[in-house]
Design a protein around this nucleic acid. Structure first.
Lengths: 216, 216
DNA sequence: CTCTTCACATACCGATCAGTATTCAGATAC
DNA sequence: GTATCTGAATACTGATCGGTATGTGAAGAG
């Protein structure tokens, strides 16, 4: 096992716990409906720990966003073990196997956190760039996948396709999470194929095409 | 002009003013960050008027959603004169001429209100159905437009296409509003055409296709 | 004109919460 | 071992807000 943690290491750990707790609760109940006492309690600490690590509640939110920019840690806080999907690819799983691989409550919670942060960014000029930057990272990741799926010749500039792909991610999730029966997850896959203009080359397309032929 | 208002008429008018004010402020600042005193003040009234017309703050939110279901009044409160776009078709304008016809601040405010209500519905079981129902109305409207645009034979079941169209609405707006330069509004039109699989028949398509050919 | 009713205004209460001043305990330095 | 430093705990404050109890003035009934 590891040696006794140094003071700095200990504080880093505390900071991460607070960020995890805050991100979870902010998504779950909303930023304004979540008190700092609740955040601290969720992390097994008290409010003093928050003010020792962050300047204010707003600073805490900003720190969450900033942490997400690095994108080098698991998407769903508190589940280091069983979910190593990066943020950049989270919603993509709506299209295929997310039911099987990701527990719905976590997808739900994460989507709500993103939306909460989006609203926060729309209202807080200083925070806007953080979310904008995060979305750029998502699009860049999507663009990469697009190149893979289309074998290098996409039917549209890759950045625009990436924006559309991200739009489908967000838009389908938006509808599916509030009304799962009316908008099933398969819709995402359909839209993706329609936009990429490719029913052939991708590995999932053949499988799902058969599915569609069978299911009607 | 009209005669002196009866008591019931007067109260209806008050109720509508309160709903308009609440919808505006809830979108602008968020539900939890907006106090009932602020809502009342925005309507030129006091908190007493709110509790004379609604059961609670939650009841006020529910009433806003319910009013939206009828969809028989202008989309942007306070602008009866210059904007008669119905809610059901609001974001569609992102694809074409919304810059010209709709003032951005109002689109912004409305989008934020919708997102705010979505979050509210995700967290409040009693309110969930209201937003789900509203989204169904939007999809139904989109389905109707799809039939028009494709001349009666869509490349996919109309309900799925409508869901995709709505997803593009929401998803493009989500990105555009937070980062206008990175995701311009034209993206929506492109996605729409890709999904509908029709560059020909629609009235806008020809115009925009020429645009694309010219612009690269 | 008088009485009743009720939509809304006013004043207030209890609860909640962000932020702060202070204390405490354990890690680090010597 | 002792002193120091500091991250976190604790206790508190001022402000805010949802909700309520009560007052008031105008509309409606007779």
């Amino acid at each position: 096992m590891s040696d006794r943690l140094t003071r700095a290491q200990q504080q880093q750990r505390t900071r991460q716990h607070l960020l995890d707790a805050a991100e979870t609760l902010f998504g779950e109940r909303g930023i304004h409906r979540t008190s700092l006492d609740e955040v601290a309690a969720e992390a097994g600490l008290t409010k003093g720990a928050i003010y020792a690590n962050f300047e204010s509640k707003t600073g805490l939110v900003a720190a969450i966003l900033e942490r997400r920019l690095t994108d080098d840690h698991p998407a769903y806080p508190g589940t280091e073990a069983d979910a190593d999907i990066s943020y950049a690819g989270w919603l993509r799983h709506l299209g295929a196997d997310y039911d099987a691989t990701l527990p719905l409550p976590k997808v739900r919670r994460f989507a709500m956190a993103i939306v909460e942060f989006w609203l926060y960014g729309m209202r807080t000029p200083e925070a806007r760039e953080s979310i904008a930057a995060w979305l750029r990272v998502v699009r860049a990741s999507n663009a990469k996948e697009i190149v893979e799926r289309t074998g290098g010749n996409p039917p549209m500039p890759a950045d625009q396709l990436a924006a559309l792909m991200t739009a489908l991610d967000v838009g389908v999730a938006f509808q599916h999470l509030i009304d799962p029966d009316a908008v099933p997850t398969e819709v995402y896959g359909r839209g993706l194929r329609a936009i990429l203009g490719t029913d052939g080359p991708s590995r999932q397309a053949s499988e799902e095409t058969a599915d569609r032929a069978a299911g009607g």
